[in-house]
């Protein structure tokens, strides 16, 4: 029983981690809370839904399609709403990000209607495997494996490619990086594309797992993932993964204890406590105030 709940927690947590990575990478580079990130996750879920419903593709193709679409969306959002504000205050950029978030969720609501829809049941034949006393469904297995695979791929990109090196340099010192000949605009676009692709994959997985896709799913999932990113230490990639898993397990524990009406408050309670006790999170670098 305990292991099964833990497994449920890890399944949910791994999707939070996927979304949290986008927040943490963007924050690491341009110190902006990308408020529209949750909305990109929601759009990803809808693209996956459209692909499976109208083209009957399997789950992996749906994930790839959603990732590609959201990469573009992420780049466009950055181009229109954040790039003109790069040199203005952080308050302006944050307000602009909130504007984008409201715009996208309302637009999807106008197109699709406010009700939630489900993925076709044929997407995954939900076989349940039994290992010893633990039951794990095929869907859970796919969720955990896909999330883990994407996170490993992300680590490889950030650690071993030239672009990844440029990303790390930019997050350490924005101005110095641009003086070294790094094309900052390209790096930022790339970061948004990576983060949005991960969120889209998370969107498709969550959409199938909870069997509900709606225009407002992005806001709460986005906020929870942000809480996970802060918990792990914003700006830190392993931190986001850790924070996501922790949050997932914490939420499932609350449900198992019969306090399900308070689950939404848990993420914010954690966020609140972390901000109070250690605003840099578990793995975050200490903040330095520069004059």
């Amino acid at each position: 029983m305990f292991f099964e709940q833990l497994l449920n927690g890890i399944t949910v947590g791994s999707t939070y981690a996927l979304i949290a990575l986008g927040y943490t990478m963007v924050y690491g580079i341009i110190t902006l809370i990308n408020f529209a990130h949750g909305e990109i996750f929601m759009v990803g879920a809808f693209v996956g839904l459209a692909l499976t419903r109208f083209l009957n593709v399997n789950v992996f193709l749906a994930i790839l399609g959603a990732m590609a679409t959201c990469m573009l969306l992420g780049i466009v959002v950055e181009r229109i709403a954040y790039r003109p504000l790069r040199r203005s205050s952080r308050l302006s950029a944050l307000i602009s990000a909130i504007g984008v978030s409201i715009f996208i969720s309302t637009l999807v609501q106008l197109i699709r209607g406010p009700q939630t829809t489900n993925y076709p049941a044929s997407v995954i034949n939900n076989t349940v495997y039994t290992i010893g006393s633990i039951h794990i469904s095929k869907l859970q297995l796919i969720m955990i494996l896909v999330s883990a695979g994407l996170m490993i791929a992300l680590q490889l990109i950030v650690k071993y490619t030239k672009m990844g090196k440029a990303m790390r340099a930019t997050s350490q010192d924005y101005d110095a990086a641009s003086l070294m000949g790094i094309n900052i605009n390209q790096v930022i676009s790339f970061t948004f594309a990576l983060g949005s692709a991960l969120a889209a994959a998370g969107g498709v997985l969550v959409g199938i797992y909870f069997n509900a896709v709606g225009p407002f799913m992005g806001t709460s999932a986005g906020l929870k993932a942000f809480a996970a990113a802060v918990l792990g230490g914003i700006g830190s990639i392993p931190g986001a993964m850790l924070g996501g898993l922790f949050l997932g397990v914490a939420e499932i524990t609350a449900i198992a204890l019969g306090k399900s009406s308070y689950t939404d408050a848990i993420a914010f309670g954690i966020l609140f406590l972390v901000l109070l006790i250690k605003p840099t999170g578990i793995l975050g670098r200490p903040l330095q105030k520069k004059v």
Binding site: I95, S96, G99, I102, T106
Partner: peptide, 18 residues
């Protein structure tokens, strides 16, 4: 369309008339 307008308004105001 009200919320759509609100969202766009925030972005446009920040860019052109912060």
């Amino acid at each position: 369309y009200r919320m759509l307008f609100y969202g766009a308004l925030l972005v446009i105001m920040m860019i052109f008339r912060p």
